[in-house]
């Protein structure tokens, strides 16, 4: 049995009167890819933001390895260095070149030498075929290229887990493929990934487990094969028919 990297225990979160997460239990094991699916507003993004401590949970706890990270006494910045996250848009810093975007975290947060961080960044960019864009600024890149750089930037921090929050939702279909290729490559390198997505066929292809969220609760969790072909819950079935037509 692989070791658990990240674990959520009865996590609750409300915004005002709106209860967005109503007790989420989830275990993420080393090297696993989990896809969160569900309608907009079902709590996918909020769950990811809670796992990264960008949102404070109202109740329940989250464990990273054997440390409870919802403990207010822990160093939040240290946790975030080992849990990477990429958002739907506005990830890159527009006033910094692609290279400086990638180098910033390792240099400022991890205290790496600039030269080392630089070499690592060039190598990562080379791997996703964007080495020639190192000196470019984010706004000069296409949306797909920007998201690939954002992925690389998160990877440069060498996180234990990578959280992806609908990172292809703002892209036109032609550009989605390139971004998904990068995720495939990360998976084959053994990266642990939790991603919220609307790309059902991709989820089916890449996920070890698929989690269907509905109104702030995990309605169903299972292998992609099981979820997509034989959903147990009628709500899962309904959601999938609407999505897959």
């Amino acid at each position: 049995m692989a070791e658990t990297v990240l674990r959520a225990d009865a996590v609750r979160k409300s915004f005002g009167d709106q209860e967005v997460l109503k007790g989420i239990d989830l275990e993420v094991t080393q090297g696993e890819v989990i896809c969160l699916i569900g309608a907009s507003g079902s709590g996918k993004s909020t769950l990811l933001r809670c796992l990264n401590l960008l949102e404070q949970v109202d109740d329940g706890d989250i464990w990273l390895d054997d440390q409870e990270i919802t403990d207010p006494r822990i160093d939040v910045d240290k946790v975030r260095r080992s849990v990477g996250i990429v958002f739907q848009a506005y990830n890159l810093f527009p006033h910094l070149s692609v290279l400086d975007n990638i180098v910033l975290g390792p240099v400022k947060a991890l205290g790496h030498k600039r030269a080392d961080a630089h070499d690592q960044a060039v190598e990562l960019l080379d791997r996703i075929g964007l080495a020639d864009k190192a000196k470019a600024y984010p706004d000069a890149l296409s949306g797909g290229q920007q998201q690939r750089v954002a992925l690389v930037r998160a990877m440069a921090m060498q996180p234990k887990v990578l959280l992806l929050d609908e990172i292809t939702s703002a892209l036109d279909p032609m550009l989605v493929g390139d971004v998904l290729d990068v995720i495939r490559a990360l998976r084959s390198e053994g990266m642990t990934i939790v991603m919220a997505t609307h790309e059902m066929s991709f989820a089916r292809e890449i996920a070890d487990r698929v989690v269907f969220l509905c109104e702030g609760q995990i309605e169903e969790i299972g292998t992609p094969e099981q979820i997509f072909t034989a959903p147990r819950s009628p709500r899962t079935a309904e959601f999938l028919t609407r999505y897959l037509g």
Binding site: L54, D77, R80, G84, Y90, G105
Partner: peptide, 13 residues
Amino acid sequence: PTQWASGRALGLT
């Protein structure tokens, strides 16, 4: 706000 979140997510203070 995502610029803030991105910075904090990289572990910057």
